[in-house]
Amino acid sequence: MASDTRDRILDALETVLLERGVAQVTLENVAAAAQVSKGGLLYHFKSKDALLAGLVRRLGERATTQRDEAVAAGTSVAAWYLQTPDITAHDDAMELALYRSLLATMRSVDAASPDEIQRTLDEALASWSDNLDAEIDDPVRADMIRLVGDGVYLRALLGLPPIDPARYRKVVARLLAD
């Protein structure tokens, strides 16, 4: 029950960020959107900064879950990292949830305490990097995969046109070639 309320609060925070913007992120607005009292919100998140850090933490958890499922299905960590987000695939709730979390996190950066949000974001990104580094022997190649994956996802988050799919498949094939 507590995790349901916590998730409902974080879902509400995402909605406020995505639909109304960072200026409207107040404990009162998020509590109202989550249909909990302000005290109920504060039970789970002691401050606005803790709430925003919780959003980033959940982003990391969602990415880890998606990565682990992809690896269990036979996809390499590098191939998972290089995937293009497809939020039009309505049957992939996990991809949509990850996309929403990442977009909301990007919109929250200016609203948070630089220390807490940055530390939480650094931890999530370090986890992704560690997994790539563990799989790829060449650190430069791991960095190239990381940078290309970050760029492709950022293009999608910003609503920019995707790279030509055939050409991108060639990029991925070259990066994944041993």
Rank of each mutant, 00 (worst) to 15 (best):
A93L: 13
R100I: 00
A126C: 06
R107I: 03
A111H: 09
P114H: 14
I145V: 12
L102R: 10
D138R: 07
P139T: 05
D137C: 03
D150V: 07
Q118D: 13
V140A: 07
Y99I: 00
L98E: 08
V109E: 02
I87D: 04
T105M: 05
M106G: 14
D137H: 02
D150C: 05
A89R: 15
G151H: 11
N131S: 12
V109Q: 06
D138Y: 00
A112S: 13
S108T: 06
I136V: 15
R100S: 02
D115G: 14
Q118W: 12
L103R: 11
L121C: 11
H90R: 11
L96C: 10
S127V: 04
D138N: 15
I136Y: 01
L98H: 05
L102A: 13
R141A: 05
R107A: 08
S127I: 00
A124F: 06
A93I: 07
D115V: 14
D130A: 15
E135I: 12
L103V: 06
T120M: 08
A93E: 12
L103Y: 01
T88C: 07
R107S: 05
D92F: 12
V148E: 01
T88Y: 13
D122G: 13
I145G: 00
V140I: 06
A124T: 13
M106P: 00
D138I: 02
D138T: 07
S127K: 06
L132N: 09
L132W: 11
L125I: 13
M144A: 07
E116R: 15
L132C: 11
D86T: 07
D91K: 09
D137P: 02
N131F: 04
D91T: 10
D122F: 09
R146P: 01
D86E: 14
D92Q: 12
V148N: 01
S129R: 14
S129K: 12
L96H: 14
I145A: 00
M144Q: 09
D122I: 01
Q118P: 02
L132S: 11
S101M: 00
